[in-house]
């Protein structure tokens, strides 16, 4: 198992290299130079060239790529073009906000979605199931920005219970988290329902019933653990995705997370900052996927055996 994890961590390195290459390459393809963006349209040609030279932007693409990688290995992610502050610090000060928000979103989504999905599957074709499925479809279709605005309208403006923006208090996170968690919980619910329906048709569920097991335990002890695998996969992938910046809700609720950071960085063509964010996202995404795979092993002994069987 440990061998498996070490090997997975090692495979992250080439993936990160590819990510860096692609980001730098794409930034290189976009028109305009960083200096032009910083100095504005009034700058003279000499001033632009001088700044580009200072930033090292006049060197060939591959040199800059290798340079970036070498610096990264030494723990240096460069400085931002605009503010001249350390990219690493810039991201690290903002990332906890996004991480907190993402965790909250996933926890709320799972707490609502999974139990509802189970209930819906167990009571298939009932009124609850139909209402739940239609409701979930509806929720999954709502755009986050609209839902966010509606929630603000109700809870901040009308009722005045929760702040409409910022991250000053713990309860400031409630509205943005709910905004993202509601469509997310609809996804979890639909996934859990489908997976559960498939599981409760399995023979071992019949075996459990033929033992005289009570229905609640048939579902919770026998079916749930088996049904959870695809749900864990989906939630994991979604979590990784949300970690990569909850851009829309950060905009709607004016939250200073990495979502807003990367958006600004792209607009100003701040290459070190964009690349730094991409490296961070990629790293955390892979980390989450690794955690999901380890969780698999905890849920399913067959997968655990497979991990053990692999030679590093």
């Amino acid at each position: 198992m440990l061998k498996y994890i070490v090997r997975r961590v090692l495979t992250m390195i080439p993936t990160l290299l590819v990510v860096i290459f692609i980001v730098l390459f794409l930034m290189n393809l976009t028109p305009g130079s960083p200096a032009l963006n910083i100095l504005g349209p009034d700058a003279t040609q000499e001033m632009v060239e001088e700044l580009n030279h200072k930033l090292g932007y006049d060197r060939p693409f591959f040199v800059r790529f290798v340079d970036y990688v070498v610096n990264l290995v030494q723990g240096d992610m460069g400085t931002t073009y605009r503010t001249n502050r350390s990219v690493f610090k810039e991201i690290v000060t903002r990332y906890p906000i996004t991480v907190r928000l993402s965790i909250l979103v996933i926890v709320i989504a799972c707490c609502i979605g999974i139990p509802l999905g189970i209930l819906s599957a167990v009571k298939q074709y009932s009124f609850f199931d139909t209402a739940g499925t239609v409701g979930a479809l509806f929720m999954a279709c709502i755009p986050a920005f609209w839902l966010g605005l509606m929630l603000v309208l109700l809870f901040s403006l009308k009722l005045g219970w929760l702040p409409a923006s910022g991250t000053d208090h713990w309860y400031s996170y409630i509205l943005p988290a709910l905004t993202q968690a509601i469509p997310q919980s609809a996804r979890s619910m639909r996934m859990t329902r489908t997976s559960m329906l498939e599981t409760i048709r399995q023979d071992y569920i019949k075996t459990a019933r033929s033992k005289g097991q009570i229905e609640r335990k048939v579902i919770l002890k026998h079916a749930l653990k088996n049904a959870l695998l695809p749900v864990v996969t989906m939630v994991g992938v979604d979590f990784g995705f949300i970690l990569g910046g909850t851009i829309v809700i950060e905009r709607v609720f004016s939250i200073n997370g990495v979502g807003t950071l990367i958006l600004d960085a792209i607009q100003t063509k701040d290459i070190p900052l964009v690349t730094g964010c991409a490296v961070f996202f990629a790293f955390f995404y892979m980390l989450v996927l690794l955690i999901v795979d380890v969780l698999y092993a905890l849920i399913d002994p067959r997968i655990k055996a497979r991990y053990r069987g692999q030679k590093a």
Partner: peptide, 30 residues
């Protein structure tokens, strides 16, 4: 009555046992 008075052996042993529980647990359950 199920399990205690009348019990059943199913056709396919490959699918009749729960893959995520040890066989000891599954026998003990009854």
């Amino acid at each position: 009555i199920r399990g205690a008075c009348i019990s059943m052996i199913f056709q396919d042993p490959m699918t009749a046992l729960n893959p995520v529980l040890t066989i000891g647990e599954q026998i003990r359950e009854s």
